[in-house]
Simulated scan of single mutants.
Amino acid sequence: MVQQIVFVTGNANKLKEVKMLLAPEVGQEARFELINTDIDLDEVQSSSLEEIARHKVAQAKTVLPEGTAVFVEDTALCFEGYNGLPGAYVKWFLKKVGPEGLVRMLEGFENKGAEAVTTVAYSDAEGEIHIFQGKTSGKIVSPRGSRDFGWDCIFEPVECANKTYAEMEKADKNKISQRSRAFALLQKHLHNDQ
């Protein structure tokens, strides 16, 4: 029987991307079924991405039936010029000032470097929590490309110079993104665990 794993998200774009990232290789049998639920989880105030993700998955476990395998994902955008800010708070900055406002934050800085970080907290059926993290270096640029996925239009990864995430094909983005790196670690764990 294929195990169900719950992804706590209400973001359809994230769900679609994560399903792509965790899909079995062509010809491989699926070892788990990914389902999602939208639970309103507390946003703890911390600069520690691991602490935020660990808190969220622990809270999700209290809402879901006992023995449910579940994971949460938290993504941060860390500006070098601000010593890592906005970091975990980027969602709130984006909501208030939009992509242009994030770019304006760095107007007085020569250093436009940034790091995108995704932290996945997975709680297995026994309740043990595992943390996986992926990182991608890049820089902040004026918005280019689609604006339908957060700050993708202002993040230009080092590994794909001259294109923002928003300008890249999904398959190309998924080869280098911080999310794909974090979920590759989760997928490896899931396949070794079963």
Rank of each mutant, 00 (worst) to 15 (best):
M105T: 05
I140K: 04
G81Q: 11
E107G: 07
S142P: 09
D124F: 08
A125R: 13
G81M: 14
G127V: 06
N83Y: 15
V117W: 00
A116Q: 12
V90N: 02
K135M: 06
A69W: 09
I131L: 06
A121Q: 06
Y82F: 14
P86R: 03
E110W: 09
A60G: 08
M105Q: 14
G67A: 09
P86L: 01
T62H: 10
W92L: 02
G113M: 15
A114I: 01
E128N: 10
D124W: 08
L94Y: 11
E107Q: 09
W92Q: 04
L102Q: 05
G101H: 04
F71S: 01
A116V: 05
N83V: 06
K135E: 10
K91T: 05
K135S: 09
Y122W: 11
A88E: 05
G127F: 00
I129A: 02
G134N: 02
T118A: 12
H130M: 05
L64I: 12
A88C: 07
Q133R: 15
A114Q: 00
A125C: 03
E73P: 09
F71T: 08
V90A: 06
A116W: 09
P65W: 13
E80S: 15
G67S: 09
Y82W: 05
T118E: 12
L77P: 02
A121M: 12
K95R: 09
V90Q: 01
P65T: 04
A60Y: 03
T118I: 11
N83H: 14
T136E: 13
F79C: 05
S137T: 11
V72Q: 07
Q133I: 12
G101A: 01
E126Y: 10
V97E: 01
E107T: 13
C78E: 07
Y89T: 08
L106W: 12
F93Q: 10
E80R: 07
L77Q: 05
L85I: 04
C78M: 09
G81K: 09
F79Y: 12
Y82H: 08
T136C: 15
T136H: 07
K112I: 13
F93H: 03
K91H: 05
C78A: 07
N111L: 08
D124V: 08
E73R: 09
V120E: 10
E126W: 12
H130S: 04
K135V: 14
V90S: 00
V70H: 06
E126D: 10
A125P: 07
E115H: 07
G101C: 00
E126G: 09
F71Q: 08
G87T: 00
G101S: 10
L85P: 11
V97H: 01
E128C: 03
P99W: 01
W92S: 06
K96A: 11
E128R: 12
T118G: 11
G113R: 15
E66A: 15
I140E: 01
V117H: 02
A60I: 04
A69V: 14
V141P: 02
Y89R: 07
T68H: 10
T118D: 13
R104M: 03
V117A: 06
Q133W: 04
G113K: 15
H130C: 06
V117Y: 02
L64M: 11
E66H: 13
E107Y: 05
T118Q: 10
G138N: 01
N111P: 13
L106F: 15
K135F: 08
A114T: 03
